[in-house]
Simulated assay, not measured.
Amino acid sequence: MDSDAWYVLKTKPKQEIRAVQNLENQGFEAYCPKLTVEKIQRGSRKKVVEAMFPGYVFVHPDDLMEQFYKLRSTYGVASVLRFGDNIPQIPGTFIEQLKQLDNRPEEQAPAVGDEVEIKAGPFKGFMAKIIKLDGESRCFVMLDWMQKQVTAHFSYRDLAL
């Protein structure tokens, strides 16, 4: 086994933070990459910290085979990720790159009045203006189409600020 290797642990639902804390309490180096995103919940904007990979954390044990059962029985951990008998290794350089992403500026949800470009569908390439937010992942936009103002409904992922 590679001494620089990290491994993936499957956590119990919504227990990534608990798993990392319990792993660190046992002396393991553990990491759960997070994102701070702005979401619209019940009509208001809120900043929420979420796991980048929900249900998974990374761990760097000294000796995986010797500590396998200790890792697996940690509170918050469901299992060690494996494919049959193969336990995939994650290079330490990849984890370092993820840690650098933690320092990125936060993602922001679009606001009413923002000018956006449509990235997908029949209106791809059109510019539009957000006129109403609809939940945490969709919005209504106003765009010019065939010399008329048209209202359309889009997912945020289909729009670019």
Rank of each mutant, 00 (worst) to 15 (best):
V20W: 00
T74C: 09
Q149Y: 05
Q21D: 12
Q26S: 11
I95N: 01
G92Q: 03
D85R: 14
G135M: 05
Y31I: 01
I90Y: 01
M142D: 15
F94D: 03
I131C: 08
G43D: 05
I87V: 15
Y75P: 15
A128Q: 02
A109M: 11
Y31L: 02
P61F: 02
N25D: 15
Q15I: 04
A19F: 04
Q89C: 08
C139D: 00
L35I: 11
L133T: 08
K70S: 09
Q26E: 07
K47Y: 08
F83M: 13
C139F: 02
F58C: 00
A109I: 08
N103S: 13
K132W: 04
D62Q: 13
N86G: 08
G92K: 05
L23M: 04
G92D: 03
G135I: 04
I90Q: 04
L98I: 03
E38T: 06
T93H: 12
N86L: 11
F140N: 04
G113R: 08
I90R: 05
P88M: 06
K46R: 13
Q26W: 04
D114C: 06
I87A: 05
I130H: 03
F28W: 02
C32I: 05
Q21S: 14
K148G: 08
C32V: 07
S137Q: 11
L133V: 09
L98M: 11
I90L: 07
K47C: 05
D63A: 12
D144H: 13
I95H: 01
L98W: 00
G76M: 05
E16W: 00
S137R: 14
T36P: 00
